[in-house]
Computed example of a mutant assay.
Amino acid sequence: MVCGIGCLGLTQDAYLLRCVRDIFTHYLHRFPVKTIRNYTTTFHPFLATLHGEVRLPVLEELRKVFLEVVRDNYLARRNISPLHLQVALSLLTELLQRNTMDWLEILSCSLLLPLLELLLTLEEQTTKRLATDLLQKVLQEAEDQGVPSRRVLVDQLRELVGRHMSWSSGRLFRVLRVVAVLHRPLLLEALPHVTRAVTRTEEKRGTGLDHTLRQGYQALLSSLGMTTPGETVQQE
């Protein structure tokens, strides 16, 4: 049904677009991503929908709408059920594993920043593990495939740092250390933005060196194998 509606032209009809968004929103979490019973494996119906036998422009538009729904109604919502969020994260990982090149660039550009911001707030261990697994898959594939460009990824890290250095630096540095483990060259390239954000935050506060910020920053440098802020790092 979703593919049929998509063929009618979502970009030209706001009502059709709203219908597709509603279908994705209300049914995404109602099915497990994969179940195995009596030797029969059943997959989430959206796995077929998002790889349907329709024209590529229609499929690309459906995927774009789907990722917008995941971003707005799952990753960015702070009062969502952990079980619903777990289904969304598992479905994204399954989509990326099935057709990496179809999803890697659009998923990275649309969801990397919301995923990183989600990791700032997660405490429930199962959901955090699923989110970290998805982040690992995205960053490893991005490093292996060179898609999207390093600049795009650095820009998203810069945005993350700019938004959260002042108010949640402890959580921010924790997430950045995870990124450093998963994709060291990316974090090295983004490090000047982190350094500037630390000094800019201290300047705005007007209280001199902030020991909490400096401890988090030093822990990040240590995770990169650097011992002092001024150490020269060879880009990989």
Rank of each mutant, 00 (worst) to 15 (best):
Thr40Pro: 05
Lys137Cys: 12
Asn38Gly: 10
Ala190Met: 05
Arg77Asn: 08
Val233Gln: 01
Leu122Pro: 11
Ala88Met: 09
Phe24Ile: 00
Phe24Tyr: 04
Glu159Trp: 01
Thr35Met: 05
Thr49Val: 11
Gln234Arg: 04
Pro45Met: 06
Glu159Pro: 02
Phe173Pro: 02
Leu91Gly: 04
Arg200Trp: 08
Gln145Ile: 10
Leu10Asp: 00
Gln234Gly: 06
Arg163Trp: 03
Leu224Asp: 00
Val20Trp: 02
Ser168Val: 06
Thr201Asp: 15
Leu187Tyr: 13
Cys109Phe: 05
Met1Lys: 12
Thr40Cys: 04
Leu89Arg: 04
Arg63Phe: 00
Gln235Cys: 07
Gln140Arg: 14
Gln156Met: 06
Cys7Pro: 05
Thr126Met: 11
Pro192Tyr: 06
Glu231Cys: 03
Leu47Lys: 09
Ile80Trp: 15
Thr227Ala: 00
Glu60Arg: 13
Leu113Arg: 03
Gly206Val: 10
Val178Thr: 15
Phe46Lys: 02
His164Leu: 01
Thr232Arg: 02
Asp22Pro: 02
Ala14Tyr: 12
Glu124Tyr: 10
Arg77His: 12
Glu105Leu: 12
Arg150Cys: 04
Lys137Ser: 09
Leu112Met: 13
Arg171Ser: 15
Glu189Met: 11
Tyr217Thr: 02
Leu91Ala: 08
Thr11Met: 10
Gly208Met: 09
Arg184Met: 12
Val58Gln: 02
Ser222Phe: 09
